[in-house]
Design a binder for these strands. Structure first.
Lengths: 150, 150
DNA sequence: TATTGTTATACTCTATAACTATA
DNA sequence: TATAGTTATAGAGTATAACAATA
């Protein structure tokens, strides 16, 4: 296989991955809209199965702590979470309310229903696909972020 | 296979897809930084192999026309493209300069070199993977965007 | 009247830096 | 001194609406 061939293949694969990525994001955004919450809140809801501290949520969302404060404020205003006191008197745990849990489940169900991977591939293929994704993620070069997101 | 099983699988696959999507975006952002252009300009460069009108570029980037004007301004300032007159006297074609072409090729090469799919999978696996991505994209439900992006 | 590009403006998402309270 | 959360502010990316020139 020529190196020109590999280059063309790499371009195609990159393009396809980015399109699939956009598709995933668009579908998720549509779902967030259907359940009437902003996308960042929908993302947080999905990660908040068990209660988590604000710093932990920042870690899961891969964002800065300072972003969590207004996010949690909004979620509290919408009645989706409560700030409850943690082990420390510094730490605040975000805990889903019943409404938050309901919303979370709605999102999960919809994500399943429109999941293009489930729709496009049969179970055996999905297992193969999943294993490949895991390997791709594991192989990823170090990303030296210029924005440390601390 | 139970429906609970499918739900869990869908969640895992969604999560993996989103992680892979973020990985792709992060890698591309790193490359854009290495060649010293903002990410949106790097994206535009990749799409501008042949010259395109501003409206066509908006279509390829899936964004509004109004976004292209300042983008093209920046690219002209950086000496990467030129606005040349098109068939119409309304239409302006964006044409890569030599510097723009060089930058474009640099980006293409780097994308190939750090492509985690190339690094993680052998040629046969990549063919399988690519076919699966194509099917996933083809199967995607209609996305009824609330933001018409016209 | 429809289309191309432009302008002015505003919105969403997210970061940085400096701060407070607690440890 | 280090950590959890907060505040104020700023920046990137992108949209909407109204507009001018051309078709």
């Amino acid at each position: 296989m020529s190196s020109a061939h590999i280059l063309a293949e790499a371009r195609r694969l990159s393009q396809l991955m980015l399109e699939t990525a956009d598709l995933s994001k668009d579908l998720f955004a549509e779902i967030a809209h259907e359940v009437a919450v902003p996308v960042p809140i929908a993302r947080a809801l999905c990660l908040l199965e068990n209660s988590a501290s604000m710093t932990e949520l920042a870690g899961m969302l891969a964002c800065d702590k300072s972003y969590i404060t207004p996010l949690a404020d909004q979620m509290e205003t919408l009645g989706l979470v409560q700030r409850v006191s943690g082990p420390d008197r510094r730490t605040k745990l975000l805990q889903l309310t019943d409404a938050g849990n309901t919303k979370r489940e709605q999102i999960g169900d919809k994500v399943t229903q429109v999941n293009p991977i489930i729709l496009a591939l049969n179970p055996d293929e999905r297992a193969t696909f999943e294993a490949m994704l895991v390997r791709i993620l594991a192989t990823s070069p170090q990303i030296q972020t210029d924005k440390p997101k601390r």
